[in-house]
Amino acid sequence: MTDPVPQTLECWLPAWQRFDHAHPLRAWLQRADRLPGGAVGYLGGLAAYFHCDAGMPAAALTREYLHGDAGDACWLGADPAWVQPDMTGARLMACGQLPLSMDEAEALAEPLQAVFADEGMKLEISSAQRWHLRLPAQSTLPDFAAPEAALGEDLYEHLPQGEAARRWRVLFNEVQVMLHQHPLNAQRRERGLPPINSLWFWGGGVLPAQVSTALSGVIGEDVLLLALAKRAGIPVQRRTRLDSAKAGWLIDLQDQPVDVIASEWWPTLQQLGKREPLRFAFASGERWLHRPWHRLRFWQRSKP
Rank of each mutant, 00 (worst) to 15 (best):
D118N: 06
L225Q: 02
G41Q: 14
R275D: 15
A149M: 05
L253H: 02
F201W: 05
A150V: 12
D72T: 03
W16N: 09
G41T: 15
S263R: 09
L278E: 13
M102D: 10
M178E: 02
W249T: 14
V211K: 06
G44W: 11
G248P: 09
P160Q: 07
E153P: 04
Q181H: 14
Q300D: 06
G204K: 03
H21F: 13
D86F: 03
H294E: 09
D222M: 00
D86E: 05
V175Q: 01
G44K: 14
Q113V: 06
I251N: 05
G55K: 04
E124M: 15
R26L: 10
F116M: 00
G45C: 03
W12Q: 06
R279W: 15
A94H: 05
A22L: 10
L269I: 11
A70C: 03
A227T: 07
Y65D: 04
Q271N: 12
D118L: 05
L224Q: 00
L278W: 11
D252P: 10
E264Y: 11
K303A: 03
A145W: 12
A94W: 11
G71M: 05
A186Q: 07
L199E: 07
L289D: 07
L250P: 05
A117W: 02
N185W: 05
G192K: 08
G152A: 04
L100H: 13
P14I: 08
T140R: 08
W202N: 03
N173P: 01
W16G: 01
V83R: 06
R231Y: 08
A149C: 08
H51T: 13
P147A: 09
G152P: 10
M121Y: 02
A232E: 04
L159H: 08
A48T: 08
E110D: 06
Y42C: 10
S244P: 12
A146V: 08
P85C: 06
G120S: 12
A105L: 14
P80S: 08
A58L: 02
T8E: 15
R291G: 11
D259K: 10
M1P: 14
R295C: 10
V175C: 01
A22I: 09
D243I: 09
C11V: 14
L171R: 00
C74V: 00
F19M: 08
A283I: 14
R31N: 13
W293P: 15
W12A: 03
S101L: 13
G285D: 02
S216K: 03
Q254T: 15
P257I: 13
G152N: 05
L199Y: 03
P235D: 04
